[in-house]
Amino acid sequence: ATNIVGKVKWYNSTKNFGFIEQDNGGKDVFVHKSAVDAAGLHSLEEGQDVIFDLEEKQGKAYAVNLRIK
């Protein structure tokens, strides 16, 4: 899925991951530091509006192509 809109539920910059809540009511999506770095960001803030693509690997969904809304 592409261009999914959501809000950062939480992001832990020490542990380098967090979760994004989808605006469409879907399951929360894992986001890793690598996606944050690829977006040219240092971190994510709770409540921040983002747009992302959804990829699945080994049955787990995660956010890629992250951008600030």
Rank of each mutant, 00 (worst) to 15 (best):
K33G: 11
L66P: 02
N16V: 03
K57A: 11
Q22C: 04
K27T: 09
W10M: 12
W10V: 05
S43G: 14
K27L: 12
E21W: 08
S13K: 11
N3P: 05
V31S: 01
D53R: 03
A39K: 03
V64P: 00
N16E: 09
H32R: 04
K15S: 08
I68F: 09
E55L: 07
V64L: 12
F17E: 02
K27M: 07
V29Y: 05
F30T: 02
L41N: 04
D53C: 03
D49C: 04
E21L: 14
W10S: 05
D23I: 11
H42F: 15
A38Y: 06
Y62M: 11
L44D: 01
K57P: 06
G59C: 04
A35L: 03
F52S: 01
G26S: 08
E46W: 12
A61I: 15
E56Q: 13
L44W: 03
D37G: 12
Y11L: 03
Y11S: 01
A63T: 03
H42W: 07
A35K: 08
K9D: 01
G40C: 04
G47R: 11
Q58S: 08
L41I: 15
R67G: 03
K33E: 04
I51W: 06
Q48C: 04
E55R: 15
L41G: 04
I20W: 00
V5T: 05
L44F: 08
G18E: 00
K7G: 02
R67S: 06
G25L: 13
G47D: 14
K27E: 15
K69E: 14
S13G: 11
V31K: 00
Q22V: 14
K69D: 10
L66H: 00
V64T: 11
L54I: 13
H32F: 06
E46G: 08
I20R: 00
G47Q: 07
V36H: 02
A61C: 04
N12A: 12
I4T: 06
D37E: 13
A39W: 03
I51V: 08
A63F: 00
D37S: 12
D53K: 04
G18Q: 01
V31A: 03
K57D: 12
A39S: 07
I20C: 02
K9Y: 02
Q22F: 07
T14S: 11
V8E: 00
Y11M: 03
K7I: 09
D37C: 04
S43M: 15
R67H: 06
L54P: 01
Q58G: 07
S13T: 14
N16Q: 12
K69C: 03
V64I: 13
G18K: 00
V5P: 06
K27D: 08
V5F: 11
K69N: 13
F17D: 01
Y11F: 13
K60C: 04
L66T: 01
E45T: 12
N3H: 06
V8A: 02
N3G: 10
G26V: 09
G26M: 15
L54F: 08
K69T: 12
E46N: 07
Y11H: 01
I4A: 07
V8L: 05
G6N: 01
V64G: 07
A38P: 03
G40M: 08
N16S: 12
W10N: 03
Q58D: 10
I68P: 08
S13N: 09
Y62T: 06
A38V: 11
N24V: 12
W10T: 04
D53L: 03
E21V: 15
R67Q: 09
H42T: 13
V8I: 12
D37Q: 06
L54R: 13
I20Q: 00
Y62D: 02
N12V: 06
V29K: 02
D49L: 10
Y62L: 06
I20L: 07
N24G: 13
T14V: 15
G26L: 06
K33R: 08
T2W: 11
A61Q: 13
E56M: 15
A35F: 10
G59M: 11
G59E: 09
E45D: 12
V29N: 02
K7Y: 15
A38H: 09
G47T: 05
D23H: 12
D28G: 07
L66D: 00
F30H: 02
K33L: 05
